[in-house]
Amino acid sequence: MSTPAEASAAPHSRLSDAFAGAGRPLLVGYLPAGFPSYDGAVAALTGMVAAGVDVVEVGLPYSDPLMDGPTIQRAVDGALEAGTTTRDVLRTVEAVSATGAPTVVMTYWNPVERYGVQAFARDLAAAGGVGVITPDVLPEESGPWLAATASYGLDPVFLVAPSSTAERIAAVAGVSRGFLYAASTMGVTGARAAVASTAAALVARVRRVTDLPVAVGLGVSTGAQAAEVAGYADGVIVGSAFVRCLLDGVDPSLLAAELAAGVAASVVRGE
């Protein structure tokens, strides 16, 4: 939980506002920039927003994506082979955030360090980005990144996992802003038949230590699963299932509509 001093020092967070203002759980949709092409990714993400995705997560394609399963690896390999660079990612953010949907970048750490930590935060903020998810950065190594994101009013989003102890959850929550990314299961990204039961338990543990919104990712691919997760989380993160649409040549906005209906259904049921 943020201390009063931190809270008063921090500028307002567009992500927090989005979660607080919606009155319902949010649907977070991921695609990597540059796949199937620069324009293709922008069109897909824009269509997903029109179909009900609330927050956009633009993936920065990276050569060694440790947290990603085969579906996202394939798309990212394709994006890199096509020559996608960090600049293309920032352009994608600019194009997609023009829809009005809060847009964040999901990136492994090395491309940020290579671009320049301050420069990356500056250019992302200038492109209209509101936050960054960094799956391989721990609170222990986050010092320069927290300083850079704070200077440019970006929300640094970190992850918790089912294996995280209460102390770890508190440490991760202490450096996160906007929302907390709860990995539903021990593993990598990818659609699963069922969302792990560890997810609800993890969200409950997170709520004991922080007021930050909690979004659940890893394994969600259907409207029914989205509804289930929206029953206990503040956000539902879907990535591989959207990428799968692109790999199969299907319009991802159809899936976005199904997932958005699932999230909405959970609210109706919940009320």
């Binding site: 721990l138 222990e140 992850l159 294996s163």
Partner: peptide
């Protein structure tokens, strides 16, 4: 240092 997913920290 450590630059890994939180899931591996434990």
């Amino acid at each position: 240092g450590r630059f890994v997913p939180e899931a591996l920290v434990a």
